[in-house]
Deep mutational scan, measured.
Amino acid sequence: MSIQHFRVALIPFFAAFCLPVFAHPETLVKVKDAEDQLGARVGYIELDLNSGKILESFRPEERFPMMSTFKVLLCGAVLSRVDAGQEQLGRRIHYSQNDLVEYSPVTEKHLTDGMTVRELCSAAITMSDNTAANLLLTTIGGPKELTAFLHNMGDHVTRLDRWEPELNEAIPNDERDTTMPAAMATTLRKLLTGELLTLASRQQLIDWMEADKVAGPLLRSALPAGWFIADKSGAGERGSRGIIAALGPDGKPSRIVVIYTTGSQATMDERNRQIAEIGASLIKHW
């Protein structure tokens, strides 16, 4: 067993022997301040990774656009098919120029040779490549099948209805392509620590998230040296922004954090800054 596999296998073990965790309302004060600064709703939840206990939450059962955070769930569904012998990570998928959609920095470079399922998941999570996500959605049967996968996990809230990039439209009061912070946090925890996926697939999923290259201005910008984070960000229309993450000190994750916002007129930089400040408060009061 590799060191990384050992780390993920012992996530519940280490967490069980940690000192009790206590909620700190100071972080919620910052979440509410972010709402004021952005002029928009902000949803927040913080779960203990081992027990699933909610440590703090704000608007945990209000719907927010998922945006690209759905790509972690998508690759979880792909990995479940791999575990069941219905898919192979090494299978190569070929596609054409007509398949390319807006923001496809990886797939646009491989029109000639195609990409493997493993490479597509890596591109979808680490670079948020939209064509990679659409190609992977095709392998599982489309958005409705991802929703069905989530329902089978016990998540009857999260739903995907459309493809990239239309799913980022974020129309107010439109339930399409949305989740709730509580539902997303619980589902992410199941994917990373539950028995739904094999140990190898859980490790692969967290490795992809740990290698995320496009979430630097968010929670990662607030992390002290030595902290662990595996995350996936999302951005959408109407001032929408979000991030889902597993993080913790001492090089291992111990909490799940989900943050979503929508309806702001603020710039992307300002949305990023507010999420980073929430992260800084979380870490300060850990």
Results as ranks from 00 to 15, higher is better:
H24T: 10
H24D: 12
H24G: 08
H24P: 04
H24M: 11
P25A: 13
E26P: 14
E26W: 15
T27N: 15
T27M: 05
V29R: 11
K30V: 05
V31G: 02
V31A: 08
D33S: 04
A34T: 07
A34N: 03
A34P: 03
E35S: 10
E35L: 02
E35G: 10
E35H: 03
D36E: 14
D36T: 15
Q37S: 06
Q37G: 05
Q37V: 05
L38W: 09
L38P: 06
L38N: 05
G39Q: 13
G39M: 10
R41Y: 13
V42G: 02
V42E: 00
Y44W: 03
Y44F: 07
I45Q: 09
E46L: 10
L47G: 12
L47C: 14
D48A: 06
D48G: 04
S51M: 10
K53V: 15
K53N: 13
I54K: 13
I54Q: 11
I54D: 10
L55A: 10
L55F: 05
L55D: 11
E56D: 05
E56F: 05
E56Y: 09
E56Q: 04
F58W: 13
E61M: 14
E62L: 04
F64G: 00
F64H: 01
M66V: 13
M66T: 10
M67L: 14
S68Y: 00
S68F: 01
K71I: 00
V72Q: 01
V72R: 01
L74S: 03
L74V: 12
L74F: 00
C75G: 06
G76H: 02
V78N: 02
V78Y: 03
S80P: 02
S80E: 13
R81N: 04
R81L: 06
V82A: 12
V82W: 12
D83E: 14
A84C: 14
G85L: 10
Q86H: 13
E87S: 08
L89M: 12
G90Q: 11
G90D: 06
G90H: 10
G90I: 10
R91F: 05
R92Y: 15
R92S: 08
R92I: 14
I93S: 05
I93R: 07
H94D: 05
Y95A: 08
Y95L: 07
Y95P: 07
S96P: 09
Q97Y: 09
D99P: 09
D99E: 05
L100K: 14
V101K: 13
E102F: 04
E102W: 05
Y103E: 06
V106D: 11
E108I: 15
H110V: 11
H110L: 09
L111Y: 13
L111K: 07
T112C: 11
T112P: 14
T112G: 15
D113V: 04
D113C: 08
M115A: 06
M115R: 05
T116R: 05
R118T: 12
C121N: 02
S122N: 13
S122A: 10
A123K: 02
A123R: 02
A124P: 01
I125E: 00
I125P: 01
I125W: 01
T126I: 08
T126Q: 08
M127H: 07
M127K: 13
S128Y: 00
S128K: 01
S128A: 01
D129L: 01
D129Q: 00
T131W: 05
A132D: 01
A132E: 01
N134G: 05
L135V: 12
L136G: 02
L136N: 02
L136A: 10
L136V: 10
L136H: 01
L136F: 01
L137W: 11
T138S: 14
T138M: 15
T138V: 12
T139H: 08
I140W: 08
G141M: 04
G141N: 03
G141P: 09
G141Q: 04
G142N: 11
G142A: 05
K144N: 10
K144T: 11
K144V: 06
E145I: 04
L146P: 00
L146M: 03
L146T: 04
A148E: 04
F149T: 15
F149S: 14
F149H: 13
L150K: 00
N152Q: 13
N152V: 08
N152T: 10
M153F: 04
M153I: 04
D155K: 00
D155A: 02
H156W: 12
V157Q: 09
V157C: 05
R159S: 10
R159D: 03
L160T: 15
D161K: 03
D161F: 04
R162V: 02
W163A: 09
W163C: 11
W163F: 05
W163S: 11
P165S: 07
E166V: 12
E166F: 06
E166W: 13
L167Y: 01
N168T: 07
N168V: 09
N168L: 08
E169C: 06
E169H: 09
A170R: 12
I171T: 15
N173F: 09
N173S: 09
D174K: 03
D174I: 05
D174Q: 11
E175K: 13
R176H: 06
R176C: 15
D177A: 01
T179E: 00
T179W: 00
T179K: 00
M180K: 14
M180A: 04
P181Q: 01
A182L: 14
A183Y: 14
A183V: 13
A183S: 14
M184N: 02
T186V: 12
T186M: 13
T186Q: 13
R189E: 09
R189I: 09
K190T: 11
L192W: 07
L192Q: 07
L192G: 03
L192I: 15
T193F: 06
G194E: 07
G194L: 13
L197Q: 04
L197I: 05
T198P: 10
T198S: 07
T198Y: 10
L199T: 06
S201Q: 15
R202A: 10
Q203I: 03
L205I: 06
I206M: 13
I206F: 03
I206C: 08
W208V: 03
E210P: 00
E210S: 10
E210A: 12
K213M: 06
K213I: 06
V214L: 14
G216N: 04
L218R: 02
L218C: 05
L218Q: 03
L219R: 04
L219G: 03
R220Y: 03
S221D: 12
A222R: 06
A222N: 05
L223H: 03
L223N: 12
L223K: 09
P224I: 03
P224F: 03
P224K: 14
A225Q: 06
G226P: 04
W227G: 02
W227S: 02
A230P: 00
A230H: 00
A230N: 00
D231Y: 10
S233G: 08
G234P: 00
A235H: 02
G236D: 05
G236V: 02
G236Y: 02
E237R: 13
E237P: 11
E237Y: 12
R238N: 12
G239Y: 02
G239M: 02
S240G: 06
S240F: 03
G242D: 00
I243D: 03
I243H: 03
A246R: 03
A246D: 04
A246W: 09
L247Q: 02
L247M: 12
L247P: 01
G248T: 00
P249V: 07
D250F: 05
D250C: 05
D250Y: 04
G251H: 09
G251L: 13
G251M: 14
K252F: 14
P253E: 05
S254F: 15
S254I: 14
I256Y: 04
V257G: 01
V258F: 02
V258K: 01
V258W: 01
Y260I: 03
Y260F: 07
T262H: 05
G263N: 11
G263R: 10
S264H: 04
S264M: 03
Q265L: 10
Q265K: 06
A266N: 04
A266H: 05
N272Q: 09
R273H: 04
R273M: 10
R273L: 06
R273Q: 11
Q274R: 09
I275E: 01
A276Q: 04
E277Q: 13
E277P: 02
E277D: 06
A280S: 12
S281Q: 15
I283E: 12
K284F: 08
K284Q: 05
K284C: 12
W286H: 08
